[in-house]
């Protein structure tokens, strides 16, 4: 197990370096946005004094490298600065939004991951049957449709026509947890539909890939029924690729949901990011991007560690 710790520490260090590189890229990209920031924020009618005052507040007079290190120094301590538009601390703006996004991602993941793996196992078991084809076509259709389209279809059938679920996922502080689940069900379901296909197909492929192994034939000639051969003998050896795909999809649930949030008017971080880009609120844009990058890195790290833990060769040394 010491080796696993070793790997975690090394990967964390590497992740930190990656994050640093990404911070430079993010900062550089925001710098490259055309036009004058102060002008964009205040609009055409701004007076010269107002512009100058805003530039001074934002520190735009300083060279880029100084501003970068100011920002980085703050970010390391958790202080992402203040909004260029409203002057409120970025942390206060992002915090609740990010929590909402995380909640929705977890909600979708709790449904999607077990569903995808179960379906994957079942289609592997019933491979090349009608069920396999139908499941493949259905999930591929879901993944190929634009998210907003899926969202609107769900609204049409599960909200407008039947009234089972609300079409707008507005949150209020006096909701019970059940209310919350009910109100956010449609956006969560949309996201489930988007991510299930990928994970299910990887589960199926990883299992089928192992079916030619001698130990699978052994399990069969030992008289094990087909479901036991797959669940007990193939699946434990198929985790590594499945886990990696799950991690990618979880990251997508957090970072790729702008459209879903938009369709359901859900107050998540994606909407905030889009708003901030149009408003040129660069401290928020930078913070959001950094959070997204960290999410990707952490989830991939978790996937690597879990893959190692599922491999008995690495868990139990000779």
């Amino acid at each position: 197990m010491g080796d696993v710790l070793d790997i975690i520490v090394k990967r964390l260090a590497l992740g930190a370096v990656t994050l640093l590189v990404i911070s430079i890229i993010i900062f550089g990209m925001v710098e490259l946005l055309p036009g004058d920031v102060a002008q964009a924020i205040l609009g055409q009618g701004a007076t010269a004094e107002n512009l100058a005052a805003l530039r001074a507040r934002l520190g735009l007079g300083d060279p880029a490298i100084v501003r970068y290190f100011d920002w980085l120094g703050g970010a390391v301590l958790g202080d992402f600065g203040r909004s260029a538009v409203t002057d409120t601390p970025v942390g206060d703006l992002i915090g609740p939004r990010f929590a909402n996004t995380l909640f929705l991602a977890c909600y979708a993941a709790v449904i999607a991951v077990p569903l995808a793996i179960t379906l994957g196992v079942i289609v592997a078991l019933l491979r090349n049957t009608i069920f396999d084809r139908v499941a493949n076509v259905a999930t591929l259709t879901a993944i190929s449709s634009p998210e907003f389209f899926l969202g609107y279809i769900l609204i049409l059938y599960l909200s407008v026509k039947t009234g089972y679920f609300p079409a707008i996922a507005k949150l209020s502080s006096d909701m019970t947890f059940l209310d919350l689940l009910h109100r956010t069900f449609l956006p969560a379901l949309t996201m489930v539909l988007v991510v299930v296909a990928h994970m299910m197909r990887m589960t199926r492929a990883a299992i089928i890939n192992l079916l030619a192994s001698p130990y699978i034939e052994m399990a069969r000639v030992k008289g094990m029924p087909a479901w036991k051969v797959i669940v007990k003998h193939a699946l434990p050896n198929a985790w590594a690729p499945i886990i990696n795909v799950i991690a990618l999809n979880l990251a997508y649930l957090i970072t790729g949901v702008v459209l879903v949030e938009f369709v359901f008017v859900y107050p998540g971080i994606g909407q905030l990011l889009v708003d901030s880009v149009t408003k040129r609120d660069f401290p928020i844009v930078q913070a959001c991007c950094l959070i997204f990058a960290a999410t990707f890195i952490l989830l991939n790290l978790a996937a690597d560690v879990l893959s190692i833990l599922t491999n008995p060769r690495l868990r139990h040394k000779k």
């Binding site: 192994s213 001698p214 130990y215 034939e217 052994m218 399990a219 069969r220 000639v221 030992k222 008289g223 094990m224 029924p225 007990k232 003998h233 434990p236 050896n237 599922t310 008995p312 060769r313």
Partner: peptide
């Protein structure tokens, strides 16, 4: 037939290293 396998007729494969499941 499956109920016979393993209990009344057993099989020993060529490569035990490949025929034992590495996960168990």
């Amino acid at each position: 037939r499956r109920a016979l396998r393993g209990s009344r007729i057993a099989y020993v494969a060529q490569s035990a290293a490949a025929s034992f499941n590495p996960a168990h």
